[in-house]
Nucleic acid binder design. Sequence first.
DNA 1: TTTATAACGGATATTAATGTCCGTTATAAA
DNA 2: TTTATAACGGACATTAATATCCGTTATAAA
Lengths: 144, 144
Amino acid sequence: MFSNSCEYGLRAIIFIAQQTTQNNKVSLSTISAEINSPEAFTAKILQKLTRNNIVKSIKGPYGGFKIEEDKLDVITLSEVVNIFDGDTIYTRCGLGLSQCNGDSPCPLHHKFIEIRDKLKYMLENSTLSGLLNDLDSDLLRLKR
Amino acid sequence: MFSNSCEYGLRAIIFIAQQTTQNNKVSLSTISAEINSPEAFTAKILQKLTRNNIVKSIKGPYGGFKIEEDKLDVITLSEVVNIFDGDTIYTRCGLGLSQCNGDSPCPLHHKFIEIRDKLKYMLENSTLSGLLNDLDSDLLRLKR
DNA sequence: TTTATAACGGATATTAATGTCCGTTATAAA
DNA sequence: TTTATAACGGACATTAATATCCGTTATAAA
């Protein structure tokens, strides 16, 4: 569904969000260990999240990454997905046709947009704080 | 959602299916023109469909591709998607975790499988004949 | 001020997906 | 039997995604 990069990005942001609720900032090495992702590549993922103003990075000793606490209620998975994979997941036709729409639909159109819109709605309505509240247990599963 | 190859494959099979209902077989060049896909690449797509026994190919003059008529009710989009993209769309965790499941779910699990299962159901229950019957008009939109 | 730490940023490497080329094989019609 | 046609199949080319490397920059603590 999502690209590899996007999956790493989602895992990272959820992990950082959780640590933020405990007033911790976390380093690259910790993040990549906790979400089970290649460290050097994860550095790029985090850069992208930083540049897009999703996370805040702090350089130097005792540095790391965190999320501004007031953003936990605001940042949605939709934004994160959009950063890594663009908006194709919300807009692309199931058969890859650029001009397909309700007026001039491909054979799959109606069945497909039903699913696509549900996905869009789900991602747009999943905030980081919401996700953390909904956890089955106090345990956050982001590895394997 | 689907790979480029898969989208071409779906467009091709739907076009061939429709032509089959009119007792026509169609050549590579016709198919790639009608579904607006690169011809040489489409040849590979069709080979894959042929090897997977979805379409039947006929070599030589007046040759081309067709679907055995009795298969129109049987072949689902699910099978075609599976040929090109494998089953990850039905099985992969939203965050890319290999061990994620209902007993040990990732934070997105419940919300995600709801969508994923709907997609799976939709694809498994979309036969070629069904799709063609559901058409809004007699016009089959598979280009652009 | 020096030193250690951790993110930054650009270059490079690897792999998979996408796409093309061209000679080969099968076959229908002349 | 010859010829033209159209799929087949393998090699090759290009592009995008994934991933790594390493010197640079910022900063906190000693």
